[in-house]
Amino acid sequence: MKAEPRYWAVVPAAGIGTRMGSDVPKQYLLLNNRPVIEHALQALLKHPKIVKVIVAIADSDHWWANTSASRHSRVQRVLGGTERADSVLNGLLSLQGDADADDWVLVHDAARPCLHRTDLENLIETLRHHAVGGLLGYPLSDTIKRVNDQASVLETLPREQLWRAFTPQMFRYGALQAALECARSSALQVTDEASAIELAGLIPQLVEGRSDNIKITRPEDLELAHFYLNQHSRDQE
C-alpha cells in the first residue's frame, strides 16, 4: 500500500527588499517584538503535517543566527540564490533522498507574517488530492489601470478574472523541481512557483484565502501587519 504523501515547506529568505528603505532586510524587521520571518515560520511549524521547513538564507546573512527559529529542530538552513526561484530550487534539492516525487511542498514568503491557520488548513485540505497543486489568492476588487513609464494611463483592465497571488503555494515535489529546473535552463523569469508550473504546461488551482495575508514590502505594511496579528490573537482567544 502506497504511503500518504508528506508535507514539506520551503521559505526563500535571501532577498534584501530595497523598497523598505532599511539597512535590515524586511524579513528581519521587528513586528510585535519578533522578526517578521519568525511570524511567517511559526504558522508553518504549528501545523502538525509539515515535516520540515527549509529556509534559504543569503551567504552574507548575519541576522538569521540571532532568531529563535534558527535553533528549531524542524528548521534547516540552506544557501539561498540570486533570485527567488534559485532559493526555492536550492531548498528542493536539499530534500533529495528524503522527499518523494508525490510529496507536497509548500513555499511561503519570509515577509508574509500574517498567514492565518485556517487558510493554511484550507489550502492543504482543498489540494490534498489534486494532481498538480495550487496557491492561496484573493480576487481583485480595485479598478486596475495599465500605465506607461511615465505613469500615464493607457487602459483600464477588466478585473473579473484577476486574482492576487499569495503564499503558501503548494505543489508536488517532483513536478515543482522539474518546473523550476526547466525555467532555469530556458532562462525564463518566474516570479513565483505557480508561474513555473504554468510554463511547464500544468494548471494550478487557486484557493481563496483571507485578504489580510499581506506581504511586507513598504514601511506602512508593518503597521497593518501589527493590526492583523493582534486581530488573529483575539480570534484565537
Rank of each mutant, 00 (worst) to 15 (best):
D100W: 11
L79S: 13
T82E: 13
A101D: 15
N90E: 14
H130S: 15
D109A: 14
C114T: 15
G133P: 04
A110W: 05
P139C: 00
R117M: 05
H129C: 09
R117H: 11
E83G: 00
G80W: 13
G91V: 04
P139E: 00
W104R: 05
D86K: 05
R77K: 15
L136A: 05
A131F: 02
D103R: 09
T118A: 08
W104E: 06
D98S: 12
I124L: 09
H116Q: 13
H72M: 04
H116V: 08
T82P: 00
R74T: 01
R84V: 04
G80R: 12
G81L: 07
D103L: 11
L106C: 14
D109G: 07
H129D: 15
G137K: 02
E121R: 12
T126Q: 12
L136S: 03
R74S: 13
S87Y: 05
G133I: 09
I124S: 01
L95G: 06
L95W: 04
L135S: 10
E83M: 13
Q76A: 13
N122A: 14
D102Y: 10
R128V: 02
N90S: 15
G134M: 06
V78K: 06
V78E: 03
G133E: 04
G97N: 08
E125I: 01
Y138R: 09
E83A: 11
D103Y: 12
R117A: 12
R84S: 00
V75M: 07
E121W: 03
D109Q: 13
V78D: 01
T82R: 14
P139V: 01
R71V: 02
R117N: 01
D102L: 11
D86T: 05
G133V: 05
V105R: 06
R74C: 05
L120H: 10
G97A: 08
R112A: 15
H129A: 14
G80L: 10
G133N: 06
L89C: 08
L106M: 15
T126H: 06
E83W: 15
W104S: 04
A99N: 02
L93Q: 14
W104F: 11
A110F: 03
G133F: 05
H108F: 11
